[in-house]
């Protein structure tokens, strides 16, 4: 067996989720090659070469891959896949975008967002918004798989010494172009990789009130998330949304503030190690999954908590 792992990065640094994808690749077994496609992404390839357990890094440095356009990346990966039995990408918006294209070009099914590797053909994955877990077996000779990052503990970022090979393959479909992007800027850790996440819900009342969560988060080095209700009410931007249709997080500590605990939200955070819920409604379903519940007015409890840490 031989596994190709598609690296997630921003052309400057490797995204930690790639370490989790390598962990899934290790569980499958065989040689692991990491493919870094981007523009000016040499530093990322060097970083990937150090990942524990990686035997080779392919670096496709070309204008066509700068913005991870699915048309170009999908073609590239389909071509590179010829030498591998498994192709793995993170179930991020990048992986979800190009991987099904690659699978279709190879005429194989894709197994989406796996949460566990049983063997080289068999995987577990959540379905129905995490309300059921399916064990599925692929009959295709080549497997294209996306991996739910939070379900796998990442391998060590250091310890490997793989060779980096330049890959001179330019795939440019010419049918799509990058216009621009608006990325949320924040000094706080990214939600999906933060050790502690503090999320606010409809109970926050408005966007300004999130300030008390930011303050507490900065003290704890935490990321700040929100429920869909808070996002839909316009309190905070949608990239903060934790839930089945937003981000899936599994930090050591998850603090849900003013969140009732709709099933959509629970699907995005129920794998957290310790869950704390602060809500004035003692009937809120969030308390059924919380390790520690505090029935209190969040506008009193959060500042008090902040003061006592």
């Amino acid at each position: 067996m031989s596994v190709l792992v598609y690296a997630e990065h921003d052309n400057a640094a490797l995204n930690k989720v790639t370490l989790s994808v390598v962990a899934a690749a290790k569980a499958i077994g065989g040689d692991i090659t990491v493919l870094v496609a981007g523009k000016g992404c040499g530093a990322v390839a060097e970083e990937a070469a150090k990942i524990d357990g990686v035997s080779k890094v392919l670096c496709a440095d070309n204008d066509a891959y700068e913005h991870q356009l699915a048309e170009n990346v999908g073609d590239l990966v389909a071509e590179v896949a010829a030498d591998y039995t498994h192709v793995l990408a993170a179930a991020t918006t990048t992986g979800k975008n190009f991987a099904p294209r690659t699978a279709a070009l190879l005429d194989v099914a894709q197994v989406s967002e796996i949460s566990e590797v049983i063997d080289a053909d068999t995987f577990k994955r959540p379905i129905y918004a995490g309300n059921a877990i399916a064990t599925v077996k692929s009959s295709d000779a080549k497997k294209v798989i996306t991996v739910r990052g939070t379900s796998f503990d990442g391998v060590a970022a250091e310890g490997g010494s793989a060779a980096v090979e330049a890959l001179d393959v330019a795939k440019n479909a010419g049918t799509s172009s990058f216009v621009g992007e608006e990325l949320a800027k924040s000094d706080r850790p990214e939600l999906t990789s933060a050790e502690i996440v503090i999320s606010g819900g409809r109970g926050m009342g408005n966007g300004d009130n999130f300030e008390i969560l930011y303050k507490l988060a900065d003290k704890l080095g935490a990321g700040v998330g929100a429920s869909r209700a808070a996002v839909d009410a316009g309190f905070v931007p949608n990239d903060m949304q934790v839930g089945q249709t937003g981000k899936i997080v599994a930090p050591n500590l998850y603090v849900a503030v003013g969140i009732s605990g709709a099933i959509q939200h629970l699907a995005g955070m129920k794998d957290s190690k310790v869950i704390v819920a602060i809500n004035k409604d003692e009937e809120a379903p969030i308390f059924q999954v919380a390790d520690y519940g505090l029935v209190a007015d969040l506008f009193e409890a959060v500042p008090e908590l902040d003061g006592k840490l």
């Binding site: 913005h67 356009l69 991020t92 918006t93 990048t94 049918t175 799509s176 172009s177 990058f178 216009v179 621009g180 992007e181 608006e182 990325l183 949320a184 999906t192 931007p237 949608n238 990239d239 981000k247």
Partner: peptide, 12 residues
């Protein structure tokens, strides 16, 4: 809607 925010692309 991408993980870090929003991206705009133009398609033929």
């Amino acid at each position: 809607e991408i993980d870090g925010g929003l991206q705009t692309v133009e398609l033929s």
